[in-house]
C-alpha cells in the first residue's frame, strides 16, 4: 500500500465517522447528565427509536427538518418524564423500568411506522441534512471536509458538548447535580432538592436521546426501518462508562465507535467473502473491549440507580 492510499483511508474514516458517531453521541451526552444525577436510563434505545420515527413522520409530512428535530426531542422529553415519574417519584427499579421503556419505544415506533406507511410499500424517504461548505476552508486537503464540511447539527452538538462539560464541572448547579448523583441525602442537607435535579436530568437525557434518534433518520439514512437503531442506545449507555462520566471522554468514545463503523464498510468492500454480519458486529465488539479495558476501573456516581427515599 502506498502513502496516498493510507491517507485516503484515514481521510475517509475521518469524514465518515462524524455522522456515524453523532446519534450515539447525542444520546450519550444526555445519559452522562442522567447518570451524573444518579439516574440510570437503560431505555435510551427505545427513546432513540421514538425520536427516529417522530422525526421521519414530521419531516415527511411538513418538510421541515428543524421542526422534525424539535418534535423528536420533545417526544424524547416526554419519555424522559415518564421514566422520571416511575423511577424518581415512584422509586421503581431503574433497570426494570429502563428495559420497559426500551420495549415500549421499540414496539411503538414500529407500530407508528406500519400504521402510517403500511408494511409492504417501499420505504418513504426524506432528504438528509445539508452540509455546510465554507469556501476555501472546506477545500483544505485531508481535514478540510472533516472540520468545515459537516451538517449544522454536528456543530450544534459540539456546542452542546462544551456547554454540558462547563455546566457539570464549572457551575454551582452542575456541582449540585453531581452531589445528587453521589449522595442525595447530603444534597438535601445542604439545601439542594434532589428530586428537582433528578427530574431536570431525566428530561435532558430524554430530549437528547430523541435528538439522537432523529439524527439517524434525518442525518444519515433519510428513511426509517424497523429497529433502525440496532443497539446504538445501549452503546451510548456503555460509552458513558467508558467516558467515566466526563463529556469529552464520552465524545472521544463515540468517535472511536464511528471510526470502526466506517472501517467495517471499507473492509467489506476489500474482503467481500467474509459475511457482512461479521463486519457489522465489529463496532460493538470494539466497544465491548474498550469498556473491558478502560471502563471496568471507572467509578460511577455512588448513588447511581439507587432511588432517593427521604428520611431513610
Amino acid at each position: 500500500m502506498n502513502v496516498a492510499l493510507i491517507i485516503l483511508i484515514i481521510e475517509t474514516i475521518l469524514i465518515g465517522m462524524i455522522p456515524r458517531a453523532m446519534p450515539i453521541f447525542a444520546s450519550a451526552l444526555g445519559e452522562t447528565v442522567d447518570q451524573s444525577a444518579g439516574i440510570l436510563n437503560l431505555g435510551v434505545e427505545g427513546i432513540m427509536l421514538m425520536g427516529a420515527i417522530t422525526a421521519l413522520l414530521v419531516d415527511f409530512f411538513y418538510h421541515n427538518p428543524v421542526l422534525a428535530f424539535l418534535v423528536a426531542g420533545f417526544v424524547g422529553l416526554i419519555f424522559g418524564a415518564i421514566h422520571g415519574i416511575l423511577v424518581i417519584s415512584m422509586k421503581l427499579d431503574q433497570t426494570v423500568i429502563g428495559t420497559a421503556i426500551w420495549f415500549v419505544g421499540w414496539g411503538l415506533s414500529g407500530v407508528l411506522y406500519a400504521a402510517t406507511f403500511g408494511l409492504s410499500s417501499s420505504p418513504p424517504t426524506v432528504p438528509t441534512l445539508p452540509h455546510i461548505y465554507i469556501p476555501y476552508l472546506t477545500n483544505i486537503p485531508f481535514f478540510g471536509r472533516f472540520i468545515f464540511g459537516e451538517d449544522p447539527l454536528v456543530y450544534i452538538l459540539i456546542g452542546a458538548l462544551i456547554a454540558v462539560d462547563y455546566f457539570l464541572n464549572h457551575t454551582k448547579q452542575g456541582l449540585n447535580l453531581r452531589t445528587v448523583g453521589h449522595d442525595p441525602r447530603v444534597a438535601e442537607i445542604m439545601g439542594v432538592n434532589p428530586y428537582l435535579y433528578r427530574y431536570a436530568a431525566v428530561l435532558f437525557g430524554g430530549f437528547m436521546a430523541g435528538i439522537g434518534g432523529a439524527y439517524i433518520t434525518l442525518g444519515i439514512v433519510g428513511s426509517f426501518y424497523f429497529d433502525i437503531t440496532a443497539g446504538m442506545g445501549f452503546i451510548a449507555v456503555a460509552l458513558v462508562y467508558f467516558g467515566k462520566w466526563k463529556p469529552y471522554r464520552v465524545f472521544v468514545g463515540t468517535l472511536i465507535f464511528g471510526a470502526v463503523y466506517v472501517f467495517y464498510f471499507m473492509m467489506e468492500d476489500l474482503y467481500p467473502k467474509i459475511p457482512y454480519e461479521f463486519y457489522q458486529m465489529l463496532p460493538y465488539i470494539v466497544t465491548l473491549i474498550m469498556i473491558l479495558v478502560i471502563g471496568t476501573r471507572a467509578k460511577p456516581p455512588a448513588s447511581l440507580a439507587i432511588p432517593y427515599i427521604k428520611g431513610e
Binding site: 457551575t171 449522595d183 444534597a187
Partner: peptide, 24 residues
Amino acid sequence: FSLIPYFNVLENISIGLNELKINL
C-alpha cells in the same frame, strides 16, 4: 458525615452554597 468522598474540600463546601450564583 454529610460529605461526598469523591469531591475535595472546596467542592464539598460549595454544594448548594447561596453565595455562588452560577459560576463555580
